[in-house]
Amino acid sequence: MSVLAAGTGVFKPPDPDGFRRHVRDHKERRLVSKVMSEHEAIERFVQDGDYLSYDCNIWNRGPASLMRELIRQRKRDLWIAAKFTAHDATLLVAAGCVSRIDVGWMEVGRVIHEAMAEGRVQLFEWSNGALAYRQLAGALGVPFLPLRYLGGTDVFRTSGTKLIEDPYTGQAVCLVPALNPDVALIHVNQCDEFGNARIFGAGVAPVETAMASRKVVLSTEEIIPNEEIRRHPQQTRVPYYMVDAVVHAPFGGYPGSVPGLYRADVEHLMEFGAAQVQGKMAEYLDKWAFSVSSHEEMLEQRVGQEKMERLRAEETIREGYYE
């Protein structure tokens, strides 16, 4: 099988046996409770320098409360997969948590521009699909997968993609390396104390992200009994043995929406946008992350019961999610 061309980009190298050994040595096979505080989950399972992947984004069912905890704990030098992300990358870069970004799509404004100009963050171009697909390879436990895009573009040239002659058809086909993040943060609708999780609605790649990642931290709107999980096993998207931590986080997607539960707080998203344009990210981060000790405190003191009730009431679509 001959390599016809190869990109020169830097990427997290695949290591399927390393992954298997991690699973053998560190993953809990018993049905034991993994419920813990967000502080403990982030402290134990996110290390400086980790490759971190999250599912969905801060506009829509993203792990927003866990991101704010990362910021509070001043995690550093993270490498993130910005697949189909919104201003999540901006937020984490503004807080100094991230030094490398694999880009699918992300909101880009002053924060990313300044960080790039000052050399504080390095970008690596992929695409939304390529990052989801690299995680699929990671989820399958194989070192690479063939795909029929990226070829011929500057994304190919600047990434770790290779073009080979397919040994079966003799035609050219691209290969991408598997992506196995060190840690995944996923916000789910419901799970039990062991981590058996239900996710409602379209996702981006929640299952691949959970399967491909060495450590998996779930935040959940609701902790439901294992008995309820066993009554509807078809609804379980992520089984317990992949999950390292379960954090109970109602409104954990705030300021984004969790479809079927609450709508996005557009006012907050505008506040974020204005803070970025005005160069006031420090004030924003202080208000929403550093000056509160937890997600719960943020909800009480910064969002308030009235607004939460309104955001719930204004999510009028429940069909397909909870009905």
Binding site: F84, G104, E125, S127, N128, G129, Y149
Partner: peptide, 20 residues
């Protein structure tokens, strides 16, 4: 690329959509 005059959101899903 490393220090662009103006950076945009990235390929997003366009690369795969325009390919497939």
């Amino acid at each position: 690329y490393e220090r662009p005059a103006r950076r945009f959101g990235g390929p997003g899903g366009a690369n795969e959509i325009a390919s497939l």
